[in-house]
Every structure is written in C-alpha cells, then in structure tokens.
C-alpha cells in the first residue's frame, strides 16, 4: 500500500440524471493523493458516470466536484486547466486517427501548454520508449493493435503531467491476449505513486493493485474498503450477490 496524502479530488452529494433516469443518487467520496481506487459494480450501476463526472465530461445535475481545492465548473475557462491535470483513459481508446502516434502525444502540450515542439517530441519519445512503441512514432494509429492503442492513450494523457489518472474500463474493448500488456502499464503507473481511479471488471487486477475498492450499485456507493475487506468479507448483501456472480 502506498503512502496516501491530502484529499486530491472530492465529490459532495453528487447527483446525475439523464432525462428521467437518475444514475447517481448522491455520492460523497474523497480520493487522496497517491491512492489507487478501483471502482467495481454491475453495468448501469453508475460507476462510469461517477468517473466521468470527476472531470466534468458529465455535468452533475447537482452536487459538487472539488479538485485540488477548486470547485469544477463547466462554464469556467479554468476547467481546461484543471482537466490538464486529470488524465483520462477510455474504453474505446479514442486515439486521434488522423495524426501520427507522436503527434497524438504532442498536440495538446504544444497547443495548450505552449510547449516547444522539440521539447514535446523529446518527452513523447521517452514516453513511447517506456511502453515499447518508440519505433511506431511516425505510424498512424490504424497500424496499431488494440493494446498498443490503449498504451498510446495512456502516455498521451501522461504527457500532460496529470496529478490523477481516471481509467474507464480500460481493458474491456481489448482482445484477451492484449489485456495484460495494458494492465502492466497501469500497474507501473500506480506503483510510481500516481493517483488512479480505475473503473474495471478485472476483479483480480482490482484486488491486487487497489488501495481501496468502491462498489457502486444503484447510483450509490454501497460498500467501500480495502480489497481484503470488500472481496473477502463483504458486509452488504448486494456486494455479496455481485461478487458471487463475478468471482
């Protein structure tokens, strides 16, 4: 377990509805610096929506998201600056298909952080080396496998030097043989002290890597605790039922 510090991101009575459907029904949660939090739960329970509210990709219907002491506000231009500090990795990778692998990584630092092209490229090459894709720098993403695309998406977010990384089911769209290589990159990140929130169906991975596990169901956090507490000794009936189905 890593050393955990002050609260990095916090939700206060977070509600989110899509039309008549209330997906989040009041979530109060604090995530501390250096923590690795795994979010588990059945599909439709609200775990992805919770994650997407943390960087305001979904605007909360009510309640607050507080990041590094700032209330995130979708109408404020500062949101872009805060988002630079909140990396996100998607299930569908969402790499930019019209750009080379290198440009995928450098475009945002160059555009939004006014970084010099050479500096951005040098850093991008270092990142690509870390994931073993340096020889693909000038290729377009269509030449990459799913696992390679997802690793690219991870270092693309890393290039912004985020303080926290959000992972939205990062391995769900991958062929089984590619899951491991992506999980390895996430593990390395987590072990380096990066604060991570990972929505995942990989229970083994969650158990192994997380400092804390949240079980979200019906739009609320039903149970939370260390992996041991949640996986070995779940207290709530819904948690028990869910785990009996997936383990």
């Amino acid at each position: 377990m890593t050393e955990v510090g002050e609260v990095l991101i916090e939700t206060v009575d977070l509600h989110k509805s899509f039309g008549d459907l209330e997906v989040l029904k009041g979530i109060n949660e604090q995530i501390r610096k250096g923590e690795v939090v795994a979010v588990i739960g059945a599909s439709g329970g609200g775990k992805s929506t919770f994650l997407r509210c943390l960087n305001m990709l979904e605007e909360p219907t009510s309640g607050k998201v507080i990041f590094e002491g700032n209330v995130l506000d979708s109408k404020s231009t500062n949101l872009n600056l805060h988002r630079q500090k909140i990396g996100m990795v998607f299930q569908q990778f969402n790499v930019f298909p019209h750009m080379t692998v290198l440009d995928n990584i450098t475009i945002t630092p160059i555009l939004e952080k006014k970084m010099k092209k050479e500096d951005a490229e040098k850093e991008a090459m270092d990142l690509l080396k870390r994931i073993g894709l340096e020889d693909k720098a000038q290729e377009y993403p269509r030449k990459l496998s799913g696992g390679q695309k997802q690793r690219l998406a991870i270092v693309r977010a890393m290039a912004m030097h985020p303080d926290i990384m959000l992972f939205d089911e990062p391995t769900s769209a991958l062929d089984p043989e590619m899951v491991k290589e992506v999980l390895e990159v996430i593990r390395e990140l987590a072990e380096s002290g990066m604060t991570c929130v990972i929505v995942t169906h990989e229970m083994g991975f969650a158990r192994e890597i997380a400092d804390r596990v949240l079980f979200i169901d019906g739009g609320v956090i039903v149970e939370e605790g260390t992996p041991e507490e949640v996986f070995e000794h779940p207290k709530n009936e819904r948690t028990k039922e869910f785990l009996s189905k997936v383990l």
Binding site: N80, I86, F90, F96, E112
Partner: peptide, 18 residues
C-alpha cells in the same frame, strides 16, 4: 465524427475551439 474524439481532446484539457 465519433463523440469519443471530442471527449478525449477535452479530457486532455484542449479548448473547445482547438
């Protein structure tokens, strides 16, 4: 264009215009 492209760019902190 897939909405995921916009979401990825915005999540990196890119402005709406860029």
């Amino acid at each position: 264009v897939d909405i995921g492209q916009t979401e990825a760019a915005r999540s990196l902190g890119m402005t709406a215009k860029n």
